[in-house]
Design a protein around this nucleic acid. Structure first.
Lengths: 168, 168
DNA sequence: TAAAACTTTCAATAACTATTGAAAGTATAA
DNA sequence: TTATACTTTCAATAGTTATTGAAAGTTTTA
């Protein structure tokens, strides 16, 4: 396979994967493009490579910065902004985990805590089933949260060796 | 908080969480409804509780069966089909992991393996960057795949004790 | 201060995804 | 076999989300 075909396939695949994880298709494609780019790219470059409008490119570059997956690079004497992706895939994974934990897991935990306060006839099956489901979910979410938190705080070496054990 | 309000909130929250994970909103809501229901529910029940059409209810119940998250329950002498959700949250989590691994991680691994074959001027920066990014991603994906696989094969006790260690 | 080189915004619109509901299909009972 | 009680399908439509591109905004340079 030639490089151009490979690039195309990768950008496509990353975009599709993104979609099934609730991530905007173009955002995932811009990320893919920057992941395999040896140089920082400008908004213009992104527009050209992906055939998207200026507004779209700009908005998704900003979103990626927001997620902490890419950063601006300013070149001395140049006015244009360039963008580079973090290339260390373990750092990328950690960052995605960190953000989703903050954006989704934590809010869900708050809601589950609220829902644990539901009063109602304790004798009723409806109330019992609700309370039990919420309680179990809260337990699982708490465990997941602690596990992720520990993983994220750990340095790479610690994580890898722990996971090597998990993997036998 | 009263039970009805709590149910409403939970169904709502689960639907929203689902959306941000690429899961159809109604599918997640039907799942939430069944998770907290002490009894199996019929299509009619789901239609009423969530105010959705027959077609929608039917399609999402089928999708949940497909994901292995709910099952049909037939009552002797009754023609209608009833549905129950798996209530053990760890089993639910495992099932979701199993399905997503099969539907997303494995296909992505196949693509990355294909992309490792990209030829091109080894001296070129472009090719080098591509090859390196794909290689690193493939390594990470392989590790994730093995880890998940081990987790899924393990019984609950093994898993919990391993993760307790990870969590200190 | 004005012009140039850029970035950001946002209303309009396109593209995509979910939902409806009536019709068709299927299985059971009489 | 026909009627009944359901389930499933699918074309039409509604609803949602993404994209465009021109206009407004910002920063730098001269």
């Amino acid at each position: 396979m030639q490089l151009e075909e490979g690039k195309e396939k990768f950008i496509q695949a990353w975009g599709t994967l993104g979609s099934s994880w609730g991530i905007n298709r173009t955002m995932a494609q811009v990320h893919a493009l920057l992941l395999i780019s040896p140089e920082a790219l400008s908004t213009e470059d992104v527009m050209q490579e992906l055939n998207v409008s200026r507004g779209n490119a700009n908005m998704n570059l900003r979103a990626l910065i927001d997620w902490g997956l890419i950063s601006k690079e300013l070149r001395p004497g140049e006015r244009k902004e360039y963008f580079v992706a973090e290339k260390d895939m373990w750092k990328v994974a950690k960052q995605v985990i960190r953000e989703r934990r903050k954006r989704e897991l934590e809010p869900m935990l708050r809601i589950l805590e609220e829902l644990k306060q539901v009063e109602g006839n304790k004798a009723e099956k409806e109330t019992q089933a609700f309370t039990e489901a919420i309680g179990n979910l809260h337990d699982l979410a708490t465990k997941a949260d602690k596990t992720l938190n520990t993983m994220l705080r750990a340095d790479e070496h610690w994580f890898l060796s722990s996971f090597m054990k998990l993997m036998r």
